[in-house]
Design a protein around this nucleic acid. Sequence first.
DNA 1: AATGAATGAGATTTCATTCAT
DNA 2: GATGAATGAAATCTCATTCAT
Lengths: 230, 230, 230, 230
Amino acid sequence: MGISERKEREKAERKILIMRCAKELILQHGVEKVSMIEIAEKAELSKATLYLYFPGKEALFEEICNEAAVRFLEYFRKRLDAEKSSIKAIQIFWLCYLELFGESEDMIIIFKMKNYISPGFPFLQQELKKQPSADSFVALLLMIKTMLEKGIEEGFFDPSIDMGETAGIIISLFSYIVENAARLPKETRQSLSIIGEMRSVFEIILRGIAREGIDRSVLKLPGIGEINQR
Amino acid sequence: MGISERKEREKAERKILIMRCAKELILQHGVEKVSMIEIAEKAELSKATLYLYFPGKEALFEEICNEAAVRFLEYFRKRLDAEKSSIKAIQIFWLCYLELFGESEDMIIIFKMKNYISPGFPFLQQELKKQPSADSFVALLLMIKTMLEKGIEEGFFDPSIDMGETAGIIISLFSYIVENAARLPKETRQSLSIIGEMRSVFEIILRGIAREGIDRSVLKLPGIGEINQR
Amino acid sequence: MGISERKEREKAERKILIMRCAKELILQHGVEKVSMIEIAEKAELSKATLYLYFPGKEALFEEICNEAAVRFLEYFRKRLDAEKSSIKAIQIFWLCYLELFGESEDMIIIFKMKNYISPGFPFLQQELKKQPSADSFVALLLMIKTMLEKGIEEGFFDPSIDMGETAGIIISLFSYIVENAARLPKETRQSLSIIGEMRSVFEIILRGIAREGIDRSVLKLPGIGEINQR
Amino acid sequence: MGISERKEREKAERKILIMRCAKELILQHGVEKVSMIEIAEKAELSKATLYLYFPGKEALFEEICNEAAVRFLEYFRKRLDAEKSSIKAIQIFWLCYLELFGESEDMIIIFKMKNYISPGFPFLQQELKKQPSADSFVALLLMIKTMLEKGIEEGFFDPSIDMGETAGIIISLFSYIVENAARLPKETRQSLSIIGEMRSVFEIILRGIAREGIDRSVLKLPGIGEINQR
DNA sequence: AATGAATGAGATTTCATTCAT
DNA sequence: GATGAATGAAATCTCATTCAT
């Protein structure tokens, strides 16, 4: 029992090692340009060994992506409190995003991979069904949608707007900005301007879906200063 | 005289044929996956012949992209009237977009190619300078920015918003949706839902950048019905 | 009659034009790297036209080579006087070589082409018979051999030496130096050092084949100064 | 332990196999005309496999060349004795040359490759610096130069002659003859006449650079007969 | 007579994947 | 379980030569 457990643990560790190396390379060079040999070399394994842990390149990438998405969702859920208002939830969502974007770079991985694996998502959901790996994307989408719909109930957002669609827009924009930001060196990426830009976009969207007459100052997202205070 | 003219015309037609075949393949499989041999086969030419018309793959793709962008800009400028209000101009912009999106698929090409040639644009403009081929993207960005700034002057939009950034957001979103939409079969793509979705996005943005208190009905974009009436 | 003559003349002129262009390119880039299209462009003709005048690349090159060799032989024969001593003849040979090397670059063409067409010559004369184009090389070889043998008769050279072989050595060395020199820009090529080097080589050979006891000062070749005085 | 050693040996053998096949093809068709696919076919490997052993065509060729040059230099150094006179050293040099020319064909490879990699060498040494692969050629040149200069000190050779230049001449001639000889079938190549010819050339040069009055019989090189007796 | 257009054959190189050990 | 070695398939690009007009 002890032995088989250890073996299993070791196997899991190897898998994580491979995924971590792949992630680093993806962050450096972009998804398309990462090759199996590079990953193998970085992990100090042989190419053939990768195939013991993953049936192929595609599967490896999908798993990387899923894992990051699941982590984000958990991270967010942990910080979320059912009683909080939708606006508050959105602000927390934003903070989680910022943190994982800057620190673990998980957001970059998520969106880079999303664009590679399910480039049509969230707009082409019918195609999605063929790729079970996209489950976590769907979960993300639903979470945002739920928040936004709660915002309608609470009177912040315009009830005539389709929040499934809006959730898609938000994911798209974040995805797009992330894809761009990922090309910058890490220091630049964490600079105020990039994060400021993402905030602008998000705020414009929030204002765009708000009910007429809502006080816009409520829709403001926390800035960098407020993040550190948190 | 007549002969040389005809030859020239034929040569131009061949060039167009190649570009058309390349465009179709790009629309079908995405830019990255299109190879010179595929284009050659589709055009019923030999690989070598392509190189008579274009110095290389890169150049072929750039020309496809530029041509589409120039066409869109001209198409739009022809319909634009200097005296019209910024809101009207934006509506016309939207109509032009819709038409070229649905009919000639030029918008799809533009944005697909943009993502291939200048993936960072519009957010990483410093990288842009290395690629002179991106001139037409810049022109597009500037045109949108100008419209939005005119909207500030006319009192529609919030003067505290950076319209260069907003123009970038709009391009990004259009680019993103287009990239997605392009994966659908043509019929689906022209369906109400996709176009409706694009309209929603654009309208949300417009509302998001509008001054507080502006009558939102002014910011509405023409729907499918109105297009055909036009 | 007048017309057909003119036509023939024009045809010959075209041929010469093509050959001249090819020669210039060979001088610039080396034989292997010259392509038919380059020659055609330089001659402001189409590739296809070249094939009207020459059955193929090979034949074009052979003719260029032959023509240069014939010219050199004629040039030399005109300056040669049957009564002159063999040493004097060799010195004139050397002067002719220098002049055509520096001015018309014919020597460069001859040897570059020789190495391309009949790389084995002068050592592999049995293979040569398959290439009738090498006639002029043979003529050159024989001329040198004749001079050297006359030198034996006149008591300058060692009668135990095979002068056919020696003639081959001389051609080889000249060929080799020319091949090297041709890679230099024209100005450098005509500099004292290259010509000086060729002279050294030739003098060493002459001393090497001289009879023992011969006054070596007789074997000196004219230097640059003497050339211009001539 | 034994296993990894065997694997390493096998890998080295494969590398040697590839190089041997490449060498044979070079000997048969000349450097320019040998392609990676031909080498692969001859070695009964796939094209891709070659790239496991060599980063590219260039590198493969350079390694072939270097290896042959290094072997020759070692072969010669082993037979050389510091106390021996320069004339003796030259005779040993000649014997080494003959042996490696006839048996392993290394000399052919060296000079064929030299003409491909550093065609200007030894006359265009300024171009050489760009090609670090030419180190072994330089070493060869220096070795000959040193021998010749020792010959001046010992009173055999004319002190007014530039021995750097002369070393260049010798390399050129050997290179030239080798290039020619390599086109012959192996049996012919090893025949008396070719080797006799090379000997003649070398002897002529030695006589040409000898001091006046030196007994020419000292400058004789061992003939075929003497080689086998050795 | 001249040529624009086309092409077949071939070159180098890359990479995901397989398999014997 | 791990891997070194091998490879098939594909990509981009070049060039001498041919042929219809």
